[in-house]
Each structure stands twice: as C-alpha cells, then as structure tokens.
C-alpha cells in the first residue's frame, strides 16, 4: 500500500487543547473493543457529545492546537479508526497522541494555519501527501502542511507498528 492522496469531507472540531479525557473519558477505560469505544468519541467535549453516535466514515477531521494532549490513551485513537475517518488535520498534536496514532495507522497531518483557512463542514478536502498540500476543492484555497516523515509512512504502509514487530 502506498499513501499518496487522501480526500474526504471536512468535519470541523477547531478547538485548541482538546485533551484525551475529552475525546474518550477515563470512566470508560475498561473498554477494549473498538466498536464499543466508537460511540463515546468526544463524549466529554462540550458541543460534540453526540459526535460518536453519528456516521463519520470518510471524513477528514480538522482540529486546532495541541490536539490529543493529556493521557496516553490508545482508545482516543482506536475510536477514530472505528469510525473509519480518513485523517485528522490540525495545527499541532500532543506528542504521545501522535505516536499512538502512527503506530495503529491513523493518519495525522500537521498544518500550522489550518484553523485560519476558510473551511466549512462538508467541504471536499484533498491532501496531497507527496507535495504536502491540503486543498479545499469547494473553496478553491490551499495550505501547505508538514511532510510526513518517511519512517512514519513506512509504519503506516506496513499496516501499523505491531505488524513490523512480527518480523523483528
């Protein structure tokens, strides 16, 4: 598998400093099953409490600064994978969240300035991985994003870190 271009409808969650407890609350930590985790995503984020119960397949979530800061909570990644979202694009990500996402194959794209770019919910976005550009096809505007480091792409293309470990 080679990841070159990703497209999907925008879903805006542009709030800075969203903590993993707002993505998946600590009271649910004995849940292991992705399908059980799925409806609880953003369950503790004011204004987005019902997000997890909706259909978000194929969406590209757009977030603000420091998304996923807080606890080392794998479920806060797993839930988005269960929703089959295409990617999360944001100003910046908490370092542990970034690593957890890469390791299980959730694509995160850092795009400083994205929260200032005119985007509405359901706009068609296209991410060109090789050129590191995000295009809003509906608005006709675009923004540079940070390149995805090769080792990160290697892990994602291998199907996640655990697959790599099978041969080590």
């Amino acid at each position: 598998m080679s990841i070159k271009k990703i497209s999907g409808k925008a879903k805006l969650v542009i709030i800075d400093d969203i903590d993993t407890d707002q993505i998946f609350h600590q009271s649910l930590l004995t849940m292991h099953d992705p399908q059980e985790i799925k409806p609880h995503i953003f369950g503790n984020l004011e204004g987005f409490e019902s997000f997890g119960k909706g259909n978000h397949e194929g969406e590209i979530i757009v977030v603000g600064k420091n998304f996923g800061k807080g606890s080392t909570r794998q479920q806060a990644v797993t839930g988005f994978l269960a929703h089959k979202i295409k990617a999360i694009v944001g100003e910046s990500f908490g370092p542990i969240y970034y690593s957890n996402a890469v390791n299980s194959g959730l694509l995160l794209i850092e795009a400083p300035g994205i929260s200032q770019l005119p985007i509405d919910n359901l706009d068609a976005l296209e991410i060109n991985i090789e050129d590191a550009i995000i295009v809003n096809l509906d608005k006709g505007n675009e923004i540079k994003c940070k390149s995805i480091p090769k080792p990160v792409l290697d892990i994602m293309e291998a199907g996640g870190l655990l697959k790599l470990g099978e041969g080590m």
């Binding site: 794998q74 957890n100 390791n103 470990g165």
Partner: peptide
Amino acid sequence: QGAGDVMLAFAMKTGKSW
C-alpha cells in the same frame, strides 16, 4: 516517555521504539 498500548506491546517484544 508515555506510550500507548501498541507501542508498549511492540516494545515488550522487540525492546525497541521509534
């Protein structure tokens, strides 16, 4: 460093991380 489930399972098998 804090790490999630996937990284830790990998690290317990390989002793490595990125």
